[in-house]
Structures are given as C-alpha cells and as structure tokens.
Amino acid sequence: MTWFTGHVDEVFGLARTHLVLSMVPLLFGLLIALPLGWMARRVPRLYGPLIAGSGLLYTIPSLALFILMPLVLGTQILDPINVIVAMTIYTIALMVRTVADGLAAVPDHVTQAATSMGIGRWRRFFTVELPLAVPVIAAGLRVAAVSNVSIVSVAAIIGVAQLGSLFTDGFNRAFVDPIVVGVIACLVLAVAVDAAILLVVRLLTPWQRGGAAA
C-alpha cells in the first residue's frame, strides 16, 4: 500500500476522470432513452424493433466500439468524446427497455384518470407518467451506472486515462499494487454512484415510503 500513499493525487485524478467518463454518458443516455422508451410504449409496432435494436447495441464489444468511434465521428483517437459517445450508446442499450417498462408499469386507471381530468398528453407524461415510472427507471439506471463504471476502464487500452489505466500500468510492469488499488477504487466509485442514485430516488419518491408524507 506504500504505492497508494505515494500516488494518492494521481489515483484521485484518475477517479475523477473515471467518474466523468461514466456518469456524463449515463445522463445523456438516459435523456435519449426517455423519448425512445416512450415511443416504444406508445407505438406498439415500434416496441419490438426499438427494444431489440437497442439491446443489440450492448453486445458490441467495448474495445471495438471505442476504436470504431473516431472512424464514425471523425474525432482524434485519444479524444475523450469517443468514450463519452460509446458509453452513452451502452446506457441507451440498457435504458430504452427500462423506460418502456417503467412507463408500462404506471397503472392504467391512473393515466385514464389524468386524461379524464383534462390533463393533456405532454403534461400527463411529465407530471404523472414519468414520476410514477421513476422507481423502475431508477432500478435500471443503477444497473447502467455500475456497468458504465466497469466498462469505461477498458478505454485505458485506447489511451484515455482513468482508473483503468492503473490496470494497464500494473499489467505492463507486472506490478500488482496499482491493479489492486484500481479495482478497489472502481468498486468504491460504483458503490458511491449507486448510493447517490438511491438517495436521489428516495427524494423523488416520498410517496413510496410508508408513514406520514411531507
């Protein structure tokens, strides 16, 4: 562990990049998956293709996707944008189905009641359906978040530095300390992100808890 104490700043720096590279795509992916999931739910004919299509994205090997990105986007090979876009694609892959399922879980009589009160389609989506889909969407989001934290480390191979760099570094030098530190740091990050999402969900869904409401 003397290695760690000597490299605290470096590890924290890598962790910060790691966090940005996994969480910014999580946000983007969610924002893109929302309309896609909504569409899958709203147009029954699109449900199959959208769910299958987005799910298929997840099967693309991450390394291949990272390498493919500069070709598709016309970016530099070392540009972090490549990683952001690739991770966003993975998030979309996981979230489209979750969003569609979350919206499907909103009880029919509740949406009908909303309609019967003259709540228009858009207002209904944002004030009734989306809030009620939060628990399901959040469950999927937690999976995607942890998955992102894990997958993004592969980007070290194409030279985008984050905690994964500790693995390549340790591997190249046949030196186990950075690898152990990297694993632990990834784990801590994943748990922290998971806990943060859980906290946000609890704040967003006071109605899910028993007891008197705020």
Binding site: P107, H109, V110, Q112, A113, A114, T115, S116, M117, G118, I119, G120, V128, P131, L132, T205, W207
Partner: peptide, 19 residues
C-alpha cells in the same frame, strides 16, 4: 381537455395519483 375539466369523473379504483 377543456371539456373534461368541466366534468367531474370518478372511476372504479378512484384512479388517484399515487405520487
């Protein structure tokens, strides 16, 4: 929507907003 806002509507399971 305006029509519906001018009519009360009650359904079997109340259809209250759980949130």
């Amino acid at each position: 929507n305006e029509l519906r806002r001018g009519m009360g509507y009650v359904i079997q399971h109340a259809g209250l907003f759980p949130h």
